[in-house]
């Protein structure tokens, strides 16, 4: 029983990070209908910024969020303006390829600049934990989960109540209609890509103290983010949050009750089942 609750707990906490990656992707996908295959590489950039700040200036990884997030936001906005914007009306396969190409360029440029060495951030809390009802709770993981909750809440508030947030949502619902309503769709796209990139960067920063960093680290996270987004429903922030946690828990429990080597497989099967039987995702509305 202990094993069950322990796995459940770590699944929920790790799911928080997956959620954050997924939220970034869902915003990009929702607003532009572009599948961003470079999402994991943006996360990787966030990790490297965090690592750089930590090793050069000894800035705590969690504190460095305040720098990493805006830096990545600007980078994302730039990518959107220079590259993504040109293919918004292109064929979907060309959009996919463009982001694959950008991902290759980013990861290989980082490799040339910083070598392909694994970087490990060692903080005083990298492996610390406390006990609660006989379960061990990882401190860094709990902290990153709380940050995720806070950011999700703030983001939800931003999208629901502010004018810009509503404009972003309107663009996500219907690009043409939003344009007719006088919303600056191009600006919303830049904002959305910047926001999505910043969230990927934050996820990278949150992972940095417990994970490791190398130029090709992004790949598996990109795939995971796709699953999170589809599970939650396109463009749904709350859905992506639930999707992330659901995937974290599924992985964790199937590692125990199916086999460790099959936990990703179980996630993909779940993904396909949801696609087939509840195609709008857990909380999605329209999907045309």
């Amino acid at each position: 029983m202990n094993v069950f609750f322990q796995s459940l707990l770590s699944g929920v906490l790790v799911g928080g990070v997956y959620a954050l990656i997924g939220i970034g992707l869902t915003i990009i996908f929702g607003v532009m209908r572009v599948i961003n295959f470079a999402h994991g590489d943006l996360l990787m950039l966030g990790m490297y910024v965090t690592w750089g700040l930590f090793t050069l200036f000894n800035i705590d990884p969690y504190l460095s969020l305040l720098i990493t997030a805006p830096v990545l936001f600007l980078w994302g906005a730039l990518l959107q303006k220079v590259f993504i914007n040109r293919v918004l009306d292109a064929l979907p396969q060309n959009q996919i390829l463009l982001t694959i190409g950008l991902g290759l360029v980013m990861s290989n440029a980082v490799m040339l600049g910083f070598t392909s060495d694994y970087r490990i951030l060692t903080t005083s809390y990298s492996s610390s934990s406390f006990r609660l009802f006989g379960l061990s709770v990882s401190e860094p993981l709990l902290f990153s989960f709380l940050v995720t909750v806070a950011i999700t809440g703030a983001l939800f508030w931003f999208l629901q109540t502010t004018d810009t947030g509503q404009a972003i949502r309107a663009t996500a619902q219907d690009r043409d209609a939003a344009q007719l309503m006088g919303i600056n769709v191009k600006r919303m796209s830049v904002l959305a890509f910047g926001l999505g990139t910043a969230l990927a960067g934050i996820a990278g920063a949150l992972l940095a103290p417990t994970y490791y960093i190398f130029p090709q680290v992004g790949g598996p996270f990109t795939l995971k983010a796709f699953v999170v987004v589809v599970l939650g429903g396109m463009g749904s922030v709350v859905g992506a949050t639930l999707g992330g946690i659901l995937i974290g828990v599924t992985e964790s429990l199937s590692a125990v009750y199916v086999a460790s080597g099959l936990k990703e497989l179980v996630v993909y099967v779940l993904f396909l089942l949801i696609l087939l039987f509840r195609p709008s995702g857990l909380l999605g509305k329209s999907r045309t």
């Binding site: 094993v3 770590s10 699944g11 417990t210 598996p220 964790s252 086999a259 460790s260 936990k263 990703e264």
Partner: peptide
């Protein structure tokens, strides 16, 4: 227990082993 590299969480596998 086999695992796929690239996962940030091996806690459940380790809990099972424990």
């Amino acid at each position: 227990e086999a695992y796929q590299k690239g996962s940030p969480d091996y806690r459940s596998t380790l809990a099972k082993v424990k």
